[in-house]
């Protein structure tokens, strides 16, 4: 159903490009936005409420990711430039709630690019993610951060 709506949206964008007679990239994107607006208008009739909800959630996942990435680079810079480096590294196991391959890959990549954590391995039964943390004095807190932050957002966006 949702894939259907996505196809409809692309179709609407193509129709817009046909009618205006210009196939430039900007015009097609504009047509896509117009199509989304049209679908938004008839959301009650075609049941496209979930479609927009999902788009919003994907967007919020992306925003969270970019914010965390900037924060993590800043933290690495501060750690490296401090005269005495306070390091308490360690590897902790993170119990996975997501179980599809695609979601595990996404979560592992995002963990690697966020402050102070780096994915080392997935356990053979795909129940645990082994994460190396640069400050591992509070592994429970780190686990909670990942579960409340990325994993929840990924579940919201792809379920």
């Amino acid at each position: 159903m949702k894939a259907n709506l996505y196809l409809t949206n692309i179709l609407l964008a193509l129709v817009w490009a046909l009618v205006t007679g210009s196939f430039s990239f900007v015009n097609i994107v504009f047509g896509f936005v117009l199509g989304a607006a049209a679908l938004h208008l008839i959301r009650e009739q075609v049941g496209s409420l979930g479609y927009f909800e999902r788009g919003r959630k994907l967007f919020s996942l992306a925003v969270l990711f970019i914010r965390e990435l900037a924060l993590s680079a800043w933290r690495v810079a501060r750690l490296v430039l401090s005269p005495r480096m306070e390091l308490k590294p360690g590897i902790f196991a993170y119990p996975l709630t997501v179980d599809r391959n695609f979601e595990i890959t996404l979560l592992a990549n995002m963990i690697t690019l966020t402050p102070g954590t780096l994915t080392v391995d997935v356990s053979d039964d795909r129940k645990f993610l082994y994460v190396h943390a640069i400050d591992c004095s509070d592994p429970d807190g780190l686990r909670r951060d990942i579960a409340m932050g990325f994993e929840r957002k990924i579940m919201e966006a792809f379920r």
Binding site: L87, P89, L118
Partner: peptide, 18 residues
């Protein structure tokens, strides 16, 4: 500057990408 492989990897993967 960091003492071992795993912590070095933190620096290379995060700050390097940004």
């Amino acid at each position: 500057r960091l003492p071992e492989l795993y912590t070095r990897m933190h620096a290379a993967s995060k700050a390097g990408v940004v």
